[in-house]
Amino acid sequence: MQKLGDFKLPNFFNYPPYFTLQPVKDTREKQIQLWKELILDYCRTQKIFIVEPENFPLFTNSGIERSLSHEAREVFLSALVSEGRAEWMDKGHRKCLVLWHRIQDWADLVLRFVKDNGLEDSVMTVEEIRSGIESRGTELYGIDRTVLMRALKLLEHKGKLAIFKGTSADDEGVKFSI
């Protein structure tokens, strides 16, 4: 089985037409579906949040010497964007934020993390949630800051916590009240 890093690639990754944007409607729809799934799978296992379309290892297969065209890269990522599984981070579409968990799912993960660690009424910094001892081994470890802030804001909106400015300028604190 072919691998990209420690990611196990499916068989069709060696199928040359997989790397050419198909013009026939039905075939193209299936192709887009397969690419969406593969991108999400790859990002999930590799903990990749930001994809640069022109510089994404998954879009090239050196084994069969095939690489997606610029147009195809844009089409596949845009398909994820239109489903709410990704967001373009700039107008030029040079960076794409991939949400292999939706923001709502990330918020649920934060809640479970808080409950599992008995932190219902404690205060934590955002940085602690991302890389603290408690989060080690959970999906929250190494989470993209933008994604985490969006999840926390959603929870704040629901009254589950309060975000406040910390003493140092670059970190914010979170007061849970579940």
Binding site: P10, P16, P23, D26, L34
Partner: peptide, 30 residues
């Protein structure tokens, strides 16, 4: 256009392969 073949455009040229897309299972890509 009937879905029998699909194309492969590469520096090697324009070639056609039998269409495997419909055979691939979305729920289990492997």
């Amino acid at each position: 256009s009937k879905g029998l073949l699909c194309r492969d455009v590469s520096p090697d040229g324009f070639r056609f392969y039998v269409n495997l897309f419909q055979d691939i299972n979305l729920d289990d890509m492997y």
